[in-house]
């Protein structure tokens, strides 16, 4: 399912809302989630999961073309931990369909 398919499903189910409102809302939600993470803030959605930042320490990388080693700065990467309901629902569907 892509973002536009998600918008379509939501627009069909929330049929009291114009399509444009649903589209703007989905974009606003994803933007707000990205903003929160970019500011180092966690996201906690019960039954879905939580997003947080994990620190990756500085390391020596390599230029794949020349083989020279290059020092890389430490950085933060987004991390998602699925919540209980999501874990259980996904696992219950195992074997019935394939990803």
């Amino acid at each position: 399912m892509t973002k536009s398919e998600l918008i379509e499903v939501l627009a069909r189910k929330q049929n009291h809302l114009p399509y444009k409102d649903v589209e703007d809302a989905v974009k606003a939600l994803l933007e707000q989630m990205s903003e929160a993470l970019s500011a180092g803030e966690r996201i906690e959605i019960r039954g879905f999961g939580s997003f947080s930042l994990h620190f990756r320490p500085p390391r020596l990388g390599r230029n794949p073309k020349t083989g020279d080693s290059v020092p890389l700065d430490g950085k933060y990467v987004p991390h998602f931990k699925p919540g209980k309901e999501l874990r259980e629902r996904v696992n219950a569907s195992r074997g019935r369909s394939s990803g």
Partner: peptide
Amino acid sequence: SFFEEIRTALQHGEQVKLSG
């Protein structure tokens, strides 16, 4: 509904791609 539809797709074995 936003989170529920994502859960439903995943439950049905479907990958969810939210560009950006």
